[in-house]
Design a protein around this nucleic acid. Structure first.
Lengths: 343, 343
DNA sequence: TTGTACGCGTTATCAA
DNA sequence: TTGATAACGCGTACAA
């Protein structure tokens, strides 16, 4: 069943059927009704491939993310997909992993699929050595590229992010201003976003004219599922003589490991150990005491990303960089001398 | 740059270029090399839409899931996407939500995109009233439909699932055989899979010639993010006089709520309260004590789903229903008199 | 308001 | 081993 069949049944030309399909108003109402009823009775749907060939688009958008089973990335993908779908686009999801070659391959695969736009979810796709970002710059010559939680300055690249540095600085300041001296900083990635967080931690010390001791900054090289591993990691640091009265983590799961460490060693939270996580995920609610964490308003980020994406695709000129502020959400693992806000 | 341009530059016909592209062997090596080098130098890629129009496929597969930010579904999507990508397919993801009309709409949207196959992730798409599953049966007339964690008997529908009933029965038996009398059963869905779990709970009592008291079966109507809500829910049941010495939950987050209840009320786990969750998610590791949970081997399910999917698409005759067994993973919230296996 | 005819870029069939 | 050409099904100038 194609447009020819419909046109014959309706006794009109394919052009008229096409006009009806695409809602043009220069069709006599009687003709339109007849065509519509025949299309309905035949259950006819225009062939998407033929349409794509002619119009050079199938209204599809590529979403790249390293690991859509990661809680944070999964949420991002979810928000983005829902918003795009409402706008009539469908999403091709590719989980690339963290290997750069796989990521490049996935990108060119999407390009060869002729998607209208590609969204890079998370900063793992950006290289510190800017020359190595050429694969992204090249892609942006053919279609718009959207970056979530990362930033790259280039025509055709649109960055939507939370100021992770400021958010982490705020969290660090909260700890310092509540009398914490030895803040263990845990991170598990060297991505763009992760480095920003770390710089926020450091800058807080500068701001308070304090020395930021590098011995308190530690990289956990393990899976985000392996909370027991985090516990062992922290225990190891303590056994080596490192003393700390606070833990600040670049991800909630690391902070949960710290809570485990405190509970198992009879350390009081938050009196003797304050703990702050990042992402404000469900993990914050599943431990006792509940974890204070930085919320970077992912849903808002995603809504704006889609807004800018759609705007760009419809030819409007949109902001190249859009930055939001994160927010420290206090729960039970921090002392909050100002106001003890509850969720 | 299209196949005509390449053919001109190479001084051959488009047919020959097409043969080279598709790796046919009836091309003179010298010709092939020339065409290949020209394609490479021009950075030529065949137009996917034109190819799709001719072949009536773009090697794309639709994945429907209600909520890809749900931890369990996110993992499923991840495994499926990775496996399909390896086989040369790309995935169109649609997050439908739990509303049936939205789900139907998403399904027909995928059909109109001419995907090669549709995968329904999770049993929320299946209706207890089998007549209402017509939309799935209809779809299966045009392309294969794969069901993860659900089952429907029909030509063109392939079901891959874990025997949730048996797994839940095993978990219940473990509790009963360790002397638990009053097992609170918590669930949060009426899906196919959820009903199977519940029936497993009930059948365990039958097996032990015990009475299954319906007053112990409770539906939590809230978000999986709302662990505090679960805590309140359980507290409410206790305050109303319900006594229980075990909690069995259809999802880990419900079980975590039970752990909170025990901790805050000074109830000893597992001595005075045994708790078992379901899905064996990361939540099992982020609480203290760590949660025993049923693992339904999601990765294996997904691998097999993709295997069967690919087989079907390549014309092979594949199993209509494939069932795996779940497994109770003991951690710190259960007594395991047989063997205390650790992860 | 409607119809004709061509272009979109492939693949596949057939003939050479 | 190669080439000419007809599909594939739609959108759209252009003509009427």
């Amino acid at each position: 069943m194609n447009i020819y069949d419909i046109s014959k049944l309706a006794g009109v030309s394919t052009a008229t059927v096409s006009r009806v399909i695409n809602g043009f108003d220069n069709v006599k109402p009687a003709t339109r009704d007849k065509v519509l009823s025949i299309m309905a009775s035949q259950g006819y749907t225009p062939n998407a491939f033929a349409r794509g060939l002619g119009l050079n688009t199938m209204n599809s958008i590529g979403i790249m993310c390293a690991d859509s089973s990661d809680m944070y990335l999964a949420k991002a993908v979810y928000y983005i997909e829902r918003n795009l779908r409402e706008e009539g686009y469908h999403c091709i999801l590719t989980c690339t992993g963290y290997n750069r070659d796989s990521q490049k391959e996935a990108l060119s695969s999407l390009l060869s699929q002729h998607v209208d736009c590609i969204i890079l979810v998370g900063s793992t796709f950006i290289d510190k050595d800017n020359k190595k970002n050429k694969y992204i710059y090249d892609a942006s010559d053919s279609i718009p590229i959207m970056l979530l939680n990362a930033s790259l300055e280039h025509k055709g690249i649109y960055s939507i992010l939370c100021d992770d540095s400021a958010a982490m600085q705020e969290a660090t300041l909260n700890l310092l201003d509540n009398g914490r001296k030895d803040i263990l900083y845990l991170f598990n990635s060297y991505s763009y976003s992760a480095e920003k967080k770390k710089s926020g931690y450091r800058s807080a010390f500068e701001l308070r004219k304090m020395n930021c001791d590098e011995r308190y900054i530690h990289y956990f090289n393990g899976s985000s599922q392996d909370i027991e591993g985090v516990y062992n990691f922290i225990s190891g640091l303590a056994e080596k003589g490192l003393h700390f009265d606070a833990v600040l983590a670049s991800d909630d799961f690391l902070a949960v490991g710290a809570i485990k460490y405190a509970i198992r060693n009879g350390i009081k939270i938050p009196e003797d150990l304050s703990i702050i996580g990042y992402n404000n995920s469900v993990l914050t609610n599943c431990c006792e005491p509940e974890l204070s964490s930085v919320d970077n308003h992912l849903e808002v980020l995603c809504q704006n990303l889609v807004r800018i994406c759609i705007g760009t695709l419809s030819g409007q000129s949109m902001a190249q960089q859009t930055v939001f502020r994160g927010e420290l959400v206090h729960r039970k693992t921090t002392i909050n001398k100002s106001n003890d806000r509850e969720e």
